[in-house]
Each structure stands twice: as structure tokens, then as C-alpha cells.
Design a protein around this nucleic acid. Structure first.
Lengths: 196, 196
DNA sequence: ACCTGAACACCGTTCAAGT
DNA sequence: ACCTGAACACCGTTCAAGT
């Protein structure tokens, strides 16, 4: 990559970050290019699609997120780990409004630049679910797809400003559904933890 | 309304129905006008916004849906009624792909042409929930907003083709979360009913 | 009353021409 | 190698002019 290309690349990422923060995930590519003092065609060659731009914009965040799943897998009890993971996911989606919809459709499209990230989140979820199922706390009649689906659905919902305040509570309800065999003591512990 | 206006109105609705069925909820207004052999401005005056068009397109369906809630309220046990209502909603969303997203954002926007319909669904849901809570089967730490949110979230999710096959199962899981105090007998009855 | 074409300000895609 | 302006085919909004 030539020096000027490198410079444009990082300048575009920085500008895109700001524009997306202000105007959301559907901000116009033209607008981003304009504000970066760069031709639209230049932006489009660095990031051929909106997904490619967001992949670059979020990859470090997404790496941190999936790495968090690994930590939870070793340091917490299976049921606590699963609920904490769900909460990590919700925190991620809430700090990147609109991205869930992008990821949810990328999930089924192997050509999407966001596909690999989705798969990583998906498999991290599936692993944590399996562990909780082996422990006996998680219901066994669901799989990683179901869990990812619920995560996507709730993430999408709390993107709507009117539902954002109910995010924690809805996660609590879904957690009860996924982990019906937790002792009420564990449930109480989780509730207290969520209020801390 | 003049005779020619009336004719355009119904012709536009018919064409819109077909175009939306084929190209989804984001079909271009221009395209609809074109296929109806009508000026774009004419379409836009009959239906000033996309929401207005869908309100007209769905109002009879939505009326049937909320009326169904009334029937369920009198003819079924509170917990069965609530689950059946959730299933009715899912059937509605699946036969009108993309509408959930429209309704979910209309829900918080009193100016939207779809606001009244959303409110009707919302209050029907809240009534059925209250009844099940009074009976003691539904968890009491949630309200109509939570229920509507879960309905919207699941409806949105199964709009994605990859999650459509898991719709029934996900409803089943959510129903368990909402109605933790059903006897296992009731749960079995619901499962059997869903497969009929 | 109702309809319409046209002008407007956008959008993302594509590519020949520049350095 | 990399960038860019311009042409293209779209989109929804608006309104003066028509019947």
C-alpha cells in the first residue's frame, strides 16, 4: 500500500467513525468521502461496500468482544458466563447503533465483509451455550442459532430509542428462558450483579 | 372524493400490494406509481408517506388481528390466549415481510400513519398479558411494553430468511419465559396445539 | 378537485482520464 | 499504484401548469 493510499485509508476510517456516530449506520458514503476531502470513488475502492467499511470500523471492537467470550468461558460458571456474554453483546450493540441489522443480514451471506465477524460471535455464543447445557442449567432444546437469533433480535430492539431503557430487563427475562434450571440463588446473584 | 380519484386510489392499492409482495417493503414509490400508470405526485398525494401507504394496505388485516385478540380474551384460558396471540402476531408478520420494522419505529412516533395500528396491537397485547398475570401464570415483572417489544423483536428476526424456520421454536422459548407458572400439562397442550 | 411533468437535491456504481 | 471527475440510473419532494 502506497503512502498516500495508507493516509487516505486511515483518514477515511476516522471520518467515517464520526459521521456514523452522528448520522447512524445509514449515513451516505458520499457524505463520508466529502468530509474526508476524498473522491467518492476513492472511498468505494478502499471499502467496496458499506459492510466492508463497518468491518474495518468494528474489527477491533469485535475482536475484543469475542475474546471476552473466551475469558468468560474459563473464569465463570457456565450459566453466569452465558448471561454475562449476553450482556456484553447488548453493550456492544448499544454503543454501535444500527450495526445489529447489518450483522444479522451478513450472518446468512457468506459474501458479506461482516460474515466472518458474525460467525465468530455465533460460534462464541454456541460454545458458551453448550457449556451451560452440559452443566444442566441451560435448556437443551435450543442451539447456537437460536441463541444468536435471540441476541440479534434483542440487539435490534434496543436500537429503537423507546426500548433502550428496557434492555436490561428484557435480557433478564430472556436469560430466565434460556437458563430455567438455575437455582433461584444464582438468579438473585445475577440480578444483583446487573444492578451493580 | 371524485370518481377518477377513487379509481386511482384503489388501482394504486392493488398495484402496491403486488409490488410489495415481489420487492418487499422498501419497493420504490416511483416504481409503484409507474406500474399503476399514474404520476408519482398522484401516488404521493394519496399516500404522503410510505407509512400511509402501508396503513391503507394493512388496515383490514390489522383490524382482523386485533379483533382476534378480543376473541381470545373471552374464549380461552388466559395463558393459552396469550400464547395464541403471540402466534397470530408471528403469522401476521411472516405474511407481511418487513412490516415489523415499519411498525416498530411507528410505535414511538405519534405522527406516523401506522401509529394507531401499533397502539391497537400494543393495547391488545397488554390486556392479554394482564389477564394472564391476574391468573398467576404470567410473570408479573413485565408490562405491555416488554411484551410488545418481544413481539416486535421476534417478528423482525423471522423476517430474515435464515431464521424463519426457527420461528415456532423461538416463540415456544419466549412463551416459557413469559409464562413460567404454567403447569407442564398446559405447556404440553400448547406444544401439541402448535403442531396441529 | 384532481392530475402531471419537470426541476431539484440527493443516492451508489462505474469508468475513462489523469498523476 | 492510486486518485478523480463526470456520466449514469436511480430515489423522494415539491410545485407550477394543466384539465
Amino acid at each position: 500500500m502506497r503512502a498516500d493510499a495508507k493516509k487516505n485509508y486511515s483518514r477515511l476510517l476516522a471520518v467515517a467513525h464520526d459521521v456514523v456516530a452522528k448520522h447512524g449506520v445509514d449515513a451516505s458514503m458520499r457524505d463520508i468521502a466529502r468530509r474526508a476531502d476524498v473522491g467518492l470513488a476513492t472511498l468505494l475502492r478502499h471499502f467496496p461496500t458499506r459492510e466492508a467499511l463497518f468491518e474495518a470500523l468494528l474489527c477491533t471492537h469485535l475482536d475484543k468482544l469475542t475474546q471476552k467470550a473466551n475469558e468468560l468461558e474459563t473464569s465463570n460458571s457456565p450459566d453466569e458466563a452465558l448471561v454475562s456474554w449476553f450482556r456484553e453483546w447488548m453493550a456492544f450493540t448499544q454503543s454501535h447503533r444500527g450495526v445489529v441489522a447489518l450483522m444479522a443480514s451478513a450472518h446468512a451471506n457468506a459474501d458479506s465483509a461482516l460474515y466472518a465477524s458474525c460467525a465468530a460471535v455465533h460460534s462464541a455464543s454456541a460454545r458458551l451455550l453448550l457449556r451451560a447445557q452440559a452443566e444442566g442449567t441451560a435448556r437443551t432444546d435450543m442451539n447456537g442459532d437460536d441463541l444468536f437469533g435471540l441476541m440479534a433480535a434483542l440487539g435490534w430492539l434496543v436500537d429503537l430509542p423507546s426500548f433502550a431503557p428496557r434492555a436490561d430487563h428484557l435480557v433478564h427475562i430472556i436469560a430466565d428462558a434460556i437458563l430455567p434450571n438455575r437455582s433461584s440463588n444464582d438468579i438473585e446473584k445475577q440480578r444483583a450483579e446487573s444492578e451493580r
